[in-house]
Write a protein that binds this DNA or RNA. Sequence first.
DNA 1: CGTGGGCCTGTCTA
DNA 2: ATAGACAGGCCCA
Length: 289
Amino acid sequence: MGNVRVCDVPFYLDVTLCCGQVFRWDKVGDWWFGVAGGRAFKVRQKGNKIEYANVDEVFLERYFGLDVDLQRISDNVNKDEHIAKALNQFWGLRLIRQEPWECLISYICATYKSIPAIKHMLNKLAAKFGEPLELEGKKFFTFPKAERLATASEVSLGECGLGYRAKYLLATSKRVCNGFDLEGLKRLPYVDAKKALMDLPGVGAKVADCVLLFSLGKLEAFPVDVWVKRVVLNHYADKLEPELLSRLRTREGLSCGDYERLNGFGRGYFGEFAGYAQEYLYHYERMQL
DNA sequence: CGTGGGCCTGTCTA
DNA sequence: ATAGACAGGCCCA
């Protein structure tokens, strides 16, 4: 029932699962329970040992991104004392390779919501439209397929607490059912894939960047949310143009243009693995509260 | 291209 | 207890 893998690469399971990139994992005791790849499984870490059940090692390694060379990425993005502190404090945090469809819907739901509320919405969606699974007597649900959501009514979607997001979900589900090639975006350059995503209802620059980074393998994507904005204002103000800086300080929120400027700063400054830097800094800033 | 206002509803705080 | 503020933005005028 239980398998053990000696993990010879840096990995920090707890931070990886609670840093806000995925929403459907829960910790019970010292075990994390979640659903991916169409099955429910559990995993925990004891020192350099990864214990897991109901999943195979190949899937696990790929899902948690254990095959990427974290040291090389760290060396690459480690440009200053701030990112260095974040890397050191949360060393082993990895970007999970999420399934694009679930990731897309998750981040459409995430707009203007807190993390607990997002989890609530996604769990209700899965319970209502997903397929039931079981592990050790606990109930789980697969994430509903696009076809299932596309044929649901806006009212029944709304019952999951989606609010105004219900119509975006419905419209985007229909687009995906009608041939929008989500997987195919992996083969496009970052800029083109982002443009294609932003054509979907409910998907702006921020949501697009999250989907690109967390599920489409675009490690240069640098999502800018309120926390990343705080990181930049608190630690990288001197890297920005004065007028941009004063706009960011006076106005709340972010105009489209200023989003792209901060996003461009991140990609330019941190380079091809900017997304890893983003996630470490994001988590770092959140832990300062 | 930039700006402002509205928005569903679950959580958290006073 | 119950109201009010706020939340990992997006869309439209």
